[in-house]
Design a protein around this nucleic acid. Structure first.
Lengths: 194, 194
DNA sequence: TCGTTAATTGATCAACCAATCAAGAACAGG
DNA sequence: CCTGTTCTTGATTGGTTGATCAATTAACGA
């Protein structure tokens, strides 16, 4: 039988790292700030602060790993729902993925935003963000082909609008309303592609 | 005669406070983070850290005062350019004010964003932000009256779009391009009000 | 002139925290 | 068993920082 409580000895590295990344996102989202101590994160992940340093080397590396993770999760959820048929279907798939529960949970969005702020300071974080922006734009451009005569502008507007909606979602008290957010985006699209 | 340069002894409070607020915005914008020390801010404002504490009591109060200031500056610049004639003129005035140089300098936008993040933590900051959102929305609703049959949705979209454009402006390397930003907004308006 | 009030700072404290290290505990292979 | 490797942590440290306080200087009013 697979036990859990007594065998975490060998091959622990990937499990520990994953636990730390999850804990980082959770704590950053919860605190609404990057001002979380390594001790907090480690405790949440069920280990000592020293072990966290052992696996990640530094707090910054932990943040970057967490950022890579949420960006990858987002990329995956887009890719998963991408085979939407037809150009307009493809477009809707991207939107839908952006506001899928995984990407729109309050803690996730809060962490996301704080990692944005990190990009103002850390070149590595800025690089990650550029990659994400480039991919999103590229995906949007493909999906918009044929639907408008200025795909570049619409893609830019759409990107900014998505970010803005995220921002407001996390800043508005109460539960986040993914459906309403999605509606805003789709209504814009209907107008822009008329 | 009222002199200025040789009597800086009494009545220093307002001058010092203003200097500290400016220094706070500048340093927060420069660092791209709220992780600036009171010593940094005080030095930039030309005084000792102790004096900063003397006038503001705490670092948080300094941040809140700075946030109030940038929000007020923004409100003023909107109100100033508001008497635009005609409904559409009024709308353009709000947009123009949002992207006026004062409000779109890199340091200002960066500070703005970091104060947004502060609202995730500080109830007082959240309150200030709500006031700003409410006012912007109210202004937009008035300006949109008669131009669309769903002013509420357009106002929401517009607000999110403005925030998103700000976000991208500060995250994109290189100088901020206010004209391009404004163009994105106005193109959206032309589509939405068609 | 004297006392009161505002302005200003150096010195200092107490807290916090990221990072290091040495050492212990558990396991695999021989 | 014995040995080396992985895993794990308590203890420590070096540095930073928000905040306090006593003391000094300068202005103002009576």
């Amino acid at each position: 039988m697979g036990r859990k409580s007594d065998m975490p000895k060998l091959g622990a590295e990937p499990i520990r790292k994953a636990a730390l990344i999850n804990a980082t996102i959770f704590e950053v989202g919860r605190a609404g700030s990057l001002d979380v101590t390594v001790a907090q994160i480690a405790r949440r992940a069920g280990m000592s602060p020293a072990l966290a340093h052992h696996y990640f080397g530094s707090k910054d590396q932990m943040f970057l790993a967490a950022m890579r993770y949420i960006l990858r999760i987002y990329g995956d959820s887009v890719r998963e729902s991408l085979p939407g048929r037809g150009t307009r279907g493809r477009l809707n798939a991207i939107i839908r993925a952006s506001f899928a529960p995984v990407n729109f949970q309050r803690e996730t969005v809060s962490a996301w935003l704080n990692f944005y702020a990190l990009a103002l300071t850390s070149p590595e974080a800025a690089r990650l963000l550029r990659v994400y922006h480039r991919r999103l734009r590229s995906n949007l451009l493909v999906a918009l082909r044929g639907l408008t005569d200025d795909p570049g502008r619409v893609a830019d507007t759409l990107g900014a609008l998505i970010d803005g909606v995220y921002l407001r979602a996390v800043l508005t008290p109460g539960p986040t309303d993914a459906a309403a957010a999605q509606q805003v985006i789709e209504t814009y699209l209907n107008e822009a592609l008329a």
